[in-house]
Every structure is written in structure tokens, then in C-alpha cells.
Simulated assay, not measured.
Amino acid sequence: MGKLGRFACIFTPMALTIASLICLALVMSGQLSKNSSIQRDLYFFKADTSKFNDNPEAIDLPGNDNIDNNLLAALQGAASTDDGLKDFYKVGLWNYCEGDKDDNGKETITYCSPRKNYFWFNPVDVWELSNTTAQKIFPDEMQKGLNTYQKVAKWMFASYIIAICLTAAEFLIGFSAIFSRWGSLVTTIVSTAQTVFVFAAATTSTALYATLVGVFESVLKPYNIKASMGTKMLSVLWLGVAFSLASGFFWLISVCCCSGKSGHKKVVVEKTPYTYERVASPYMGVSGNAHEMHPPTGHGTTGSAYEPFRHQQHNV
């Protein structure tokens, strides 16, 4: 029962670790394949340019802002080419995908960029903005946002790689926890490190792309270019964080409980010291001295009236 109880105690954190690993794998697979519906729907950031407005007279700018002619000219040039602005752009961890929309709003991905370590979405390069630089096109607000995005994206990418490696290690090391609490202790340490990196990656991703959406909306919304975050991606990501926290908690519990040793012990009954045992009859055989066995018969008692005992001391 001990080993079986230990296995039952380890099953819960192992299952939670596997669930966290699956969530991280889904997050990292977003936009890697245009043929998979699951991967197509998983993205951190989306830019919708399907309703791009290049008519200066129809552009609605807030307050007394003037139209940025350089930015408008660059966007007009990109939209006028066959390989220019697509209807939407979805950004994943490794790459981005682009595509078109039909009249009913159905999206069709036509191209996904190659995978790249430390990937970040650069609209100047992706949109081919008339071979100009971002410093000449975008306002300072958007340029600062893109610079921050480029720098933080490197840390975010590294966090995801470390997190998924630690999750895989946690799962493998977790098998040792079935046999001892020491295994649980080591797994708990790995799980704690994994939780730190998963939480850091999720927090960084959420904050980074929320900031990027705000920057795009403030600068490009007057041109009817909309930006949004992927709710499905964030849901899977934070669900993975929840699984990670729960698995760490149950790994810690397994260190303190479910030792794996059997609770049944063999009971040994020992005799009380200074007890008496009946000796065999007849005592000392029939040829023994009668006076050592029986009292005088003159008192009216028979030889069997007295039963001899020997005094023994049992060493414990």
C-alpha cells in the first residue's frame, strides 16, 4: 500500500506538469503552420489593415492633429503594390503570418515568414514602406514603442525556451519522486524555477503586446489600421501558468507526505520477565526422590496435590 499511495500522491503534480507542458507547446507553435486551424488562431498580436484608408480627406484625426504626409505616403505606396499591405498580420513567437479576407470576413493565410530566433514584428520591413526608415516615417511615440518591443522580445523569447526546457526536465525528474521524498525535493526545486520563468514569460508577453497594441492604435487608428491581442493565445498561456503553480504546490506537498513506506508492522509479543512455566510431569522422572516431589503422605494429601513449578527469568 505504501508504494501505491506514493504513486497516487505523485500522479496529481505529474498530470499538472504535463498540462503545463502542453500549454507552452501550443503557445510556441502559434503561427508556425497555416494549415493547422489551432495554430492559425494562436497569436500574440494582430494588425488588421483590411480597411486601410488612404484618402486624406476621409482621415479623422483627433483634435488639431495634422496628417503625417510621410507616413501616409509610405502606407499608400505599400498598399498600391501587389506584395504590399495584406488584410491582416498575425504575430507569433517565432514568426508572423499574413493573409486576405473575403467579403464575409473569412480569413485565409497566404504566407508565413520563416522561423527566427528572437523574432519581432517590424512593420517597416514587413510592409515594405517605400524603402524608408522608421525614424523618417513613424512619430516618436511609435518609434520608442518599436525599439522597446525589439529589445524586450529577446528576453521574452529566451524565457519561453528556458521555461519549456525546465518543464520537460520537471516531468522527467518527477519519476524519481515515485520512489523517495528526495526525488520530490529535487523536482520541487526544478518546478519552482520553471514557474518563475513561465510567469515571467507570460507577464512580459502580456505587457509587451498590450503596449504595442496601444502604440499602433494611437498612431495608425486614424488610417483605419486596427491592432488587437490574441485572446486565445493569452488564455492558453495563463492557463499554463496556473497549471505550473498548481504542480509546484503539489510537488511540495509530496515532499512532506506519502513517504512510500508500508504502514503495517509485524507485532512481536514478548513474555513478561519473571514469569512461571509449568514443568513436565513427572518431574525428574519416576526415579526421583519422592520427598523432593511430594510432601509427607501423613497429612492426607496425595502425591498429585502439589504441582511443581520452576522459577525462570526471561531476558528481554
Score class of each variant (00 low, 15 high):
residue 2 G to A: 14
residue 4 L to H: 14
residue 6 R to A: 10
residue 7 F to D: 03
residue 7 F to S: 10
residue 7 F to A: 15
residue 8 A to G: 11
residue 8 A to Q: 07
residue 13 P to F: 03
residue 13 P to N: 10
residue 14 M to D: 02
residue 15 A to F: 02
residue 17 T to F: 13
residue 22 I to L: 12
residue 22 I to C: 05
residue 24 L to A: 06
residue 27 V to P: 00
residue 28 M to I: 09
residue 31 Q to C: 03
residue 32 L to P: 02
residue 41 D to I: 11
residue 41 D to H: 14
residue 42 L to C: 09
residue 46 K to E: 14
residue 48 D to E: 04
residue 50 S to Y: 10
residue 51 K to N: 14
residue 52 F to D: 11
residue 54 D to I: 01
residue 54 D to S: 11
residue 58 A to I: 01
residue 58 A to L: 12
residue 61 L to Q: 02
residue 62 P to I: 11
residue 64 N to C: 05
residue 66 N to Q: 15
residue 70 N to F: 01
residue 71 L to F: 11
residue 71 L to E: 04
residue 77 G to L: 02
residue 78 A to G: 03
residue 83 D to A: 10
residue 83 D to L: 09
residue 85 L to W: 05
residue 86 K to W: 13
residue 89 Y to V: 08
residue 90 K to G: 02
residue 91 V to F: 09
residue 92 G to W: 09
residue 94 W to T: 13
residue 106 K to L: 14
residue 106 K to N: 15
residue 109 I to Y: 09
residue 109 I to F: 13
residue 110 T to A: 09
residue 113 S to G: 01
residue 113 S to W: 12
residue 115 R to V: 06
residue 115 R to Y: 07
residue 116 K to I: 07
residue 118 Y to K: 15
residue 119 F to C: 04
residue 124 V to R: 05
residue 131 N to T: 05
residue 132 T to K: 07
residue 134 A to I: 00
residue 137 I to T: 00
residue 140 D to C: 05
residue 140 D to Q: 13
residue 148 T to D: 05
residue 148 T to K: 09
residue 151 K to M: 06
residue 152 V to C: 05
residue 162 I to Y: 09
residue 162 I to D: 04
residue 163 A to E: 11
residue 163 A to M: 06
residue 164 I to A: 08
residue 165 C to Y: 13
residue 165 C to W: 13
residue 167 T to K: 06
residue 168 A to K: 03
residue 168 A to V: 15
residue 169 A to I: 14
residue 170 E to C: 15
residue 178 I to N: 02
residue 180 S to L: 03
residue 181 R to Y: 04
residue 182 W to K: 03
residue 184 S to D: 04
residue 188 T to C: 14
residue 188 T to S: 15
residue 192 T to H: 04
residue 195 T to Q: 06
residue 200 A to I: 09
residue 201 A to Y: 04
residue 206 T to E: 07
residue 218 S to F: 00
residue 219 V to N: 04
residue 220 L to G: 01
residue 227 A to H: 03
residue 229 M to H: 02
residue 235 S to R: 03
residue 237 L to M: 15
residue 238 W to I: 08
residue 238 W to K: 03
residue 241 V to Y: 02
residue 242 A to L: 10
residue 242 A to R: 01
residue 243 F to C: 14
residue 243 F to V: 06
residue 246 A to H: 08
residue 251 W to N: 05
residue 253 I to G: 00
residue 254 S to Q: 04
residue 254 S to E: 06
residue 257 C to Y: 07
residue 259 S to L: 05
residue 261 K to S: 15
residue 264 H to I: 11
residue 265 K to W: 11
residue 267 V to C: 08
residue 268 V to M: 09
residue 269 V to P: 03
residue 275 T to H: 12
residue 275 T to L: 10
residue 279 V to Q: 03
residue 280 A to N: 05
residue 281 S to F: 10
residue 283 Y to N: 00
residue 286 V to A: 14
residue 286 V to Q: 09
residue 290 A to M: 08
residue 291 H to N: 07
residue 295 P to E: 06
residue 300 G to H: 02
residue 303 G to V: 01
residue 306 Y to E: 01
residue 308 P to Q: 07
residue 314 H to C: 06
residue 315 N to H: 12
residue 315 N to D: 08
